[in-house]
Computed example of a mutant assay.
Amino acid sequence: MKSKTLLVVFLLFSAVSFSQQLTLKSGGKIYDSNNQKLSNAAVKEILAAQPELLAQYNQGRTKAAAGGFLLGFGVGLLGADLVTGITQDKIYPTAITYIGLASTIIAIPVLIGHSKKIKKAIDGYNESLLINKTGFNVEKINVITNQNGIGMRISF
């Protein structure tokens, strides 16, 4: 009886230990429970079982790419117009400066929004692990007595 109980306890702990929690650290890097950095493809593979979380993660990655492009484009235009204004005899600032400034300002909320979406997807995945912690549901537990002694019956 002791060996059966230990087997059940071992199976429960082994089922829980295979679920890996994800951690989002600064810089948008995602780590698993072993503190190893996961690639974008690995995170997508992990989230593939939950399509709504995968869609949210993909939206966050798309916003990150768009925000990075807008920020780089804006800073590039600002720098190019500044260098042109300094080296040539032109009136500074021109329309290029204003376009670059607008692109840079638009990039800020886009970049802030991407990290929130990715964080929600990772948090949703971690919460789903906590909900499905057991592999079975115990319906009822009965204490049984007979001529041989006292026992316990667990119905799954």
Rank of each mutant, 00 (worst) to 15 (best):
S3K: 14
S3T: 11
T5P: 00
L7Y: 14
V8S: 09
V8G: 00
V8F: 12
L12F: 13
S14V: 13
F18P: 00
S19H: 08
Q20R: 09
L22K: 02
L22M: 06
T23L: 08
L24W: 08
S26K: 15
G27C: 12
G27I: 15
K29G: 06
Y31M: 11
L38S: 06
A41S: 13
A42S: 14
V43Q: 09
K44L: 09
I46Q: 11
L47W: 08
A48V: 11
L54Y: 08
A55T: 06
Q56W: 01
Y57W: 14
N58M: 09
Q59Y: 09
R61Y: 13
T62H: 12
G68A: 08
G68D: 07
L71F: 14
L71C: 04
G72V: 02
V75P: 00
G79C: 01
L82E: 00
L82S: 01
T84V: 02
T84G: 02
I86Q: 01
T87K: 15
Q88N: 14
Y92A: 02
Y92E: 00
T97L: 07
T97I: 00
Y98I: 04
A102L: 13
V110I: 15
H114W: 11
S115M: 11
S115W: 08
K116A: 13
K117T: 05
K117A: 15
K117I: 04
K120P: 02
K120A: 15
N126G: 00
N132D: 14
K133E: 04
G135H: 05
V138H: 01
E139C: 01
I144V: 15
I144N: 14
N146E: 07
N148S: 10
N148A: 13
N148G: 08
G149C: 09
G149T: 08
G149I: 13
S155N: 03
